[in-house]
Design a protein around this nucleic acid. Structure first.
Lengths: 171, 171
DNA sequence: TTAATTAGTGATTGATTAATCACTAATTAA
DNA sequence: TTAATTAGTGATTAATCAATCACTAATTAA
């Protein structure tokens, strides 16, 4: 009963995992749900990922990669910070799953996942810091910290549906 | 075999729950672990809390209460923001469990827990906003947003042990 | 054409754990 | 002193789910 329709099975599963994990969190996501979304049987997941944890790490890494990719831009020094904020806002709309997964990864205590989170955050921080420094932004490190803080509050605000956390409670 | 030593059983359990949840997260915490820490048997937990979820909500509410309490201060308008930042830093050292639980609550998808998180965050935001407004801080709403953002990044930085997120990567 | 490989599945298992049940011992009240 | 209540436990259960196993059908290579 092999249906040779799709050839990117591993990628299908990764993408399905990204979606389901982002929606339900790590622990409430079953491998059966991911399989269903990917259009395969539950055991077949394990042909590509040894464990659920490994699959989550792969999805989390992909999410961080996509966030990093979005920041690969050229901008005039004077526009840099504003451009990056704009990019992040757009990303929040266009790739909500990647953003949600980032947040979910933060409070998963499993070691491998914690490490992926650390690596992902560190790479975003480093990338941003380099950009800020190249643009000769004064007090770059503090500015990066503020940038990250606002970004994460933005994620939270979307994820738990509390817009007043960032829009000042207006309208 | 009733041992009438302790009379604050419910409180013991709540406190034990706060600790274990903060350490292991919601899903990796078993009611057996909490019972062990509280010095009682696992089934006895359910005499005080109908479900594990109800217990978590109680612990989360307590955590938010304590955070709010800490902000109940009098300060000269010109010192307000700095005082509040200092208080928050101290709280992070003195009550790490409350801070951790706040973060953990953010990515638990269960409805009742999500609602407690929203209530807790809203009350912190409102309290802070009132203080800032009373002190006639210009742009109070934006300042509150920044204050919250920095606070949460601070929590994350402690929780996942990545000091460079807030201290600028120095030392 | 047939052997080997690849793609895939249904059924099962073993571990975990929230929650319940059926109790017992101690304490308090009458 | 005894009846009722309170405090507590050990054993069990029912559900969930990651992971494995034992397969089958299709595809490719010889």
């Amino acid at each position: 009963m092999a249906r040779p329709k799709k050839e990117n099975r591993k990628d299908d599963i990764l993408e399905a995992g990204l979606e389901v994990f982002a929606d339900k969190g790590y622990y409430n996501t079953t491998t059966a749900l991911i399989a269903e979304k990917a259009g395969i049987s539950q055991p077949y997941v394990f042909k590509f990922f040894k464990t659920k944890e490994e699959l989550f790490v792969a999805a989390l890494d992909r999410a961080y990669e996509r966030i990093l990719q979005a920041f690969e831009i050229e901008a005039e020094p004077e526009d840099l910070v504003n451009d990056m904020i704009k990019i992040y806002e757009e990303l929040t709309e266009s790739n909500p799953n990647e953003i949600a997964l980032q947040l979910i990864g933060l409070s998963v205590t499993e070691d491998a996942i914690r490490n992926s989170t650390r690596l992902g955050l560190a790479s975003i921080r480093n990338h941003t810091l380099e950009k800020f420094q190249s643009a000769e932004i004064p007090n770059a490190e503090e500015q990066v910290s503020t940038f990250l803080a606002r970004g994460i509050l933005c994620n939270i605000s979307h994820f738990i549906n509390m817009p007043e956390l960032i829009d000042g409670g207006g309208r």
